[in-house]
Design a binder for these strands. Structure first.
Lengths: 149, 149
DNA sequence: AGAACTTACTTGTGAAATGCAAGTGAAATG
DNA sequence: CATTTCACTTGCATTTCACAAGTAAGTTCT
């Protein structure tokens, strides 16, 4: 079921290298955080997210994430200008990576959002499961909406 | 005990953003992989690692990782030309991040090193514990060596 | 229907990061 | 003491990035 790409021109076959080639930049994981944790779906929401990504970079990253099969795109049925960006199964599977990165930074750096951190620390598995649950529900709703007359 | 930097000029206080600002590039995590999993300690080893990092980039990344407190540097007592790079506690704490990234890529991409992947899949916690164990033993040995007459 | 506005981009330009080749100085080796 | 090894640095071409401005398609207002 999960599509695996032969993926041309990779520097090495190491799985960590594959991850780094897809996600190793200063924006991709933040976009995925916004989708996963904040429920962002529209271009404009990402553009206005706190860290301030440039519009050309955002367009480029969304295109690459879609090429990698991490996110999917479709027209908003209720507003033809908008595109709805959503996580694929491959995308939501990054939840454990994001949570570990949050835990690591929280342990070793001075950061904000202690509520999020404490929730993850309390029960990591539960946090990931909840993220998956929200994603699954959203996928169902989204499917229902797309089949409206 | 863990030093937390006030860290000037960060784009946001989000812990994920902190991680991404330190590790979000195409090389840093590969260097850490080589230290953690392959036991690399010398500049030349990293230079000759499979993915082929350029020497100026390597020097830059090692300097930054040291600035962030993720790795530490000392002279090799048995050869004054060499520097020994080693993981700090903050560095070895990235083991869970690396393992999750390996698992994700292994699940969704075509990669090599199935032995490593299977070992991690078999028991994630155990794999991380073993990495920590190796690190702790190495730290003891290293300390002993540095106090030789 | 037409003007004004939104949305999701693209394009242009300068600055910064990257990749490659060559060079340097300190320390070890023969 | 000449040569080699090691950990870099320097110079330069290429790529990526950030910022500002513009554009086409679709929607809302009147």
């Amino acid at each position: 079921m999960p599509k695996k790409k032969p993926s041309p021109k990779r520097r090495s076959g190491c799985p960590l290298n594959a991850s780094v080639e897809m996600l190793g930049d200063r924006w991709s994981l933040l976009i995925l955080r916004d989708m996963m944790l904040r429920g962002f779906r529209y271009y404009k929401e990402f553009l206005e997210s706190y860290e301030g990504i440039a519009t050309n970079i955002l367009a480029d990253r969304l295109r690459k994430l879609e090429d990698y099969g991490i996110i999917a795109t479709k027209r908003d049925p209720s507003d033809g200008r908008k595109l709805i960006y959503s996580l694929t199964a491959k995308g939501i599977d990054l939840a454990p990576v994001l949570t570990e990165m949050v835990l690591w930074a929280a342990a070793h750096e001075e950061t904000r959002n202690p509520a999020l951190v404490r929730e993850i620390q309390k029960d990591k598995e539960k946090f990931v499961a909840a993220a998956r649950q929200r994603w699954a529900e959203n996928a169902i709703r989204s499917k229902a909406n797309s089949t409206l007359p």
